[in-house]
């Protein structure tokens, strides 16, 4: 168990491509941090730098107060769970878990004890003699977890560990990993491109885009106060509606065509802004709202998604299952406190 300090970490590849532009944050002892972003955002590179599988071009990385920039992955006291599990195919489950311990010259009796305990925690006791090829995807995933926890490391690293599982199993494993991490209290860094995983598992989320950190915060902070249009559109499904707008008098914004919405903003009239509104933050009203032309209704069971246009820009609204939903002209009620405003161009929150 340890805290991890990333001090202006940068990664530049020999061909000049900069994958990480200065990552600067501290992971607290026992915290579960999720790095999230679209593919190519540098989240895996950052994780691999923490693991020591990728050299650090600039900056310092310390684990538990010790700078580990040049320390070999094996000596950083970390464990990693890989996307494709990376189990040794020719070894039994028990041997897979024991391999790291064996290489660290731990006595046979001790190894047996540790493996047995880890297997018990993960419900793998009956499978210890099987080969990975005889296991299902979920079981392999658990063996990969077992290989990590058996060593009782300072730090867990997860590289999209659930992306190869089907949706149902993914939901189960999400909870299982989170429960295990809470129980063991091991500091963890988890990489995913799935915003649901990020929201449900993280103590804090780090949102990355193009090698830069867009925002760091708790899931609630990220969701309710996104720092940029990128975060706003990436986190949340369906994503936040983002409309081009102009600031008007009295804290309202104009969406064009004489549609004005009270936004509680204090901006110079005429300033161009991006107007953001979560699909679930709007309600349909009989009249007096802003016009919303619905083209398609998606039935999701628990709720319905209405896709259409507001002021000639695409807009989505999510309504509870009991609300009637029809295509054609509807009216929307917008509450000013649910409006997010972002600077035009750079996309930063105002």
């Amino acid at each position: 168990m340890a805290s991890v300090i990333l001090n202006n970490l940068k990664k530049t590849y020999p061909n000049g491509f900069q994958a990480v532009h200065g990552a600067d944050f501290t992971i607290r002892d026992g915290e579960f941090i999720v790095l999230v972003g679209p593919s190519g955002c540098g989240k895996s590179t950052l994780l691999r730098m923490i693991a020591g599988l990728e050299d650090i071009s600039e900056g310092t990385l310390s684990i538990d107060g010790q700078v580990v920039n040049t320390i070999d992955p094996a000596d950083r006291d970390i464990a990693m769970v890989f996307q494709n599990y990376a189990l040794y195919p020719h070894m039994s489950v028990a041997k897979n878990m024991a391999y790291g311990l064996k290489n660290r010259k731990i006595s046979k009796a001790e190894i047996e004890k540790l493996v047995a305990r880890a297997a018990q925690v993960l419900n793998l006791t009956e499978m210890l003699d099987r080969k990975p090829s005889q296991l299902s995807g979920g079981q392999r995933q658990r063996v990969a977890m077992g290989r990590a926890i058996v060593r009782n490391p300072k730090l867990f690293l997860f590289d999209e560990p659930l992306s190869n599982l089907d949706a149902k199993l993914r939901g189960q494993m999400r909870i299982e990993i989170r429960r295990l991490q809470r129980e063991l209290g091991v500091t963890s860094v988890y990489v995913t491109h799935d915003q649901v995983e990020a929201m449900t598992m993280a103590d804090r989320i780090v949102v990355l885009n193009g090698g830069r950190i867009e925002q760091i915060g708790t899931p609630a902070e990220i969701y309710h106060r996104p720092a940029s249009t990128f975060v706003a559109s990436f986190m949340g499904a369906p994503p936040m509606n983002l409309l081009a707008a102009t600031a008007a008098e009295n804290g309202a914004v104009s969406l064009g065509q004489d549609i004005q919405v009270a936004a509680g903003a204090d901006l110079a009239a005429g300033r161009k802004v991006t107007f953001g509104l979560r699909p679930e933050d709007v309600a349909l009203v009989a009249e007096g709202g802003i016009p919303f032309d619905v083209q398609i209704v998606e039935e999701l069971g628990a709720n319905r998604l209405l896709h259409g246009q507001v002021a000639a820009q695409p807009f989505t609204v999510s309504v509870p299952k009991d609300n009637p939903a029809t295509t054609g002209r509807n009216q929307l009620l917008v509450r000013p406190e649910t409006v997010h405003l972002f600077a035009d161009g750079v996309g930063a929150r105002i």
Binding site: P73, I78, A79, M80, H90, R147
Partner: peptide, 28 residues
């Protein structure tokens, strides 16, 4: 797979160990 090499590195297997413990049995 590259991941296997990395897993072995984190598991503390040096080049010789990786060759004998992982690569040779895989190649049988």
């Amino acid at each position: 797979p590259e991941e296997l090499v990395e897993a072995a590195r984190i598991d503390g297997a040096g080049p010789l160990k990786f060759f004998i413990d992982i690569l040779v049995p895989l190649s049988r």
